[in-house]
Design a protein around this nucleic acid. Structure first.
Lengths: 253, 253
DNA sequence: AAGTGGTCTAGACCACATA
DNA sequence: ATGTGGTCTAGACCACTTT
């Protein structure tokens, strides 16, 4: 039998398509360049549009493509390195930390938040909504929960505009004893998706942080990062220079 | 006009389906319980199977469902908290760190790895393949890269079985000066998928770690965690007790 | 052999951005 | 008005597990 055993373990079409597209992306396209539309691409590769889309979806998940409804599909730049776990423990809102407050409210903690805080389900918490922008585009939204018990000296009469800064200021009075983080995969809620300029359900990295002071959880935050454009960095050094899938990239005109 | 404005902003069917299914999951099903098959579910909700699948896919992404070909769809237990960033910096392979070596090789570093190591593209590296198991199931695979220059005193004559332990032993001689981590979303390579008991392309959390010694990167690892079952934890305290989307869960019989 | 989830097709229409 | 990606349908067949 002189025939080489080819395609004996047949891989799915979309999987093979993905590898073909990756090669084309690395060799024939520049970052930012726009691809042919899905109908044309599907015809070119001789597959149904749904199959082509399955390949594109994974490439977008891996941060190699960016698709925008009404516009088209473009080659994505390397993911941004976003520092999440600094070496020095600091309170949120202290010392220029790249977050910008966009809202504030005081309400009863939802059950899920109460579980993280370790408080009762009916305790009042200040909820500060913040946003993180890098290189001109939003990369994360965050809900920061501060139990009222953590900021007992907060002035009760505050205009909405002064509320968030006041809560943070009171929080900084406490001595921060430690932080705790968890990262998991999620899909963007409708509201988060809007802030992040994505469609609902887009893949996101959810970072849950607990801030410890006075021997208990003094505050907690749930931050939602765009999974397609962000690489979360932890540890001593800051962002790593080069990402993994291309050594150098040039901006298309 | 006395009519309440309902469904003016029509949400996609699969999105609405998701919320319906989440409610059903929380109220009518136990962890581990098997759901009706996709064709029945689609018929019950009056949608095409592809639409139903779009909802199930997102629920699996969020760790609420587990689907296995030939078996069925089950309600997933809460995600496991997997400690990734210990407070004390330690070399891999030191002091019972939950990883188990399953292979080893010495070869030239791929370009992507060389970039992380900061070495030349043609330098020899030891590649140790390890696996992490929690609660009886594999949760991660890892490729640990150790440049030959980091372990100069390694005995050149080693049986394959002794190779990996010897490399780690030599590595532990060095003083570990710091670690560096990055987390990003990826899709499982075919080989990784096999180890993790998932299909190729399954969503994974890729943790890239750099180990610093002697003022340079003495080793680096790329670990691939199942995104559906894992919640990566960092920081002082270990795994958090309760996860976010259910306060208590009982094991089905 | 039967039943499950996974892949694939060839259409259709919708929401959105842009010219 | 046109073109893009996003949603949806009603089938078909395949790969895999279990009976």
């Amino acid at each position: 039998m002189g025939t080489t055993q080819l395609e004996s373990v047949q891989e799915p079409k979309y999987w093979h398509l993905k590898t073909v597209l990756i090669d084309a992306l690395d060799s024939e396209f520049e970052v930012g360049e726009i691809l042919p539309n899905e109908r044309d691409l599907a015809a070119r590769f001789g597959v149904a549009r749904a199959t082509l889309r399955q390949a594109l979806e994974q490439l977008e998940l891996e941060g190699r493509l960016q698709r925008r409804r009404g516009v088209g599909t473009t080659v994505a730049p390397p993911r941004m390195g976003v520092a999440v776990g600094p070496s020095a423990n600091v309170w949120p809102g202290a010392g220029r930390d790249a977050w910008q407050t966009i809202g504030c409210a005081e309400a009863v903690a939802p059950a899920a938040v109460a579980a993280v805080l370790g408080t009762g389900a009916d305790e009042a918490v200040h909820t500060i909504h913040r946003e993180r922008v890098m290189q001109g585009q939003p990369v994360a939204t965050e809900l920061l929960y501060v139990p009222a018990a953590s900021v007992p000296d907060l002035s009760p009469l505050l205009s909405p505009a002064n509320h968030a800064p006041a809560v943070l200021r009171e929080l900084h009075v406490l001595e921060l004893e430690g932080e705790d983080r968890a990262v998991e995969l999620g899909s963007a809620r409708a509201e988060d998706a809007k802030h992040l300029d994505r469609l609902p359900g887009a893949p996101v990295l959810v970072v849950t942080t607990r801030y410890f002071a006075q021997g208990r959880v003094a505050a907690a935050s749930v931050a939602t990062y765009r999974a397609d454009t962000c690489r979360l960095t932890f540890g001593d050094s800051g962002a790593v220079e080069v990402t993994h899938h291309q050594a150098e990239s040039r901006q298309a005109s």
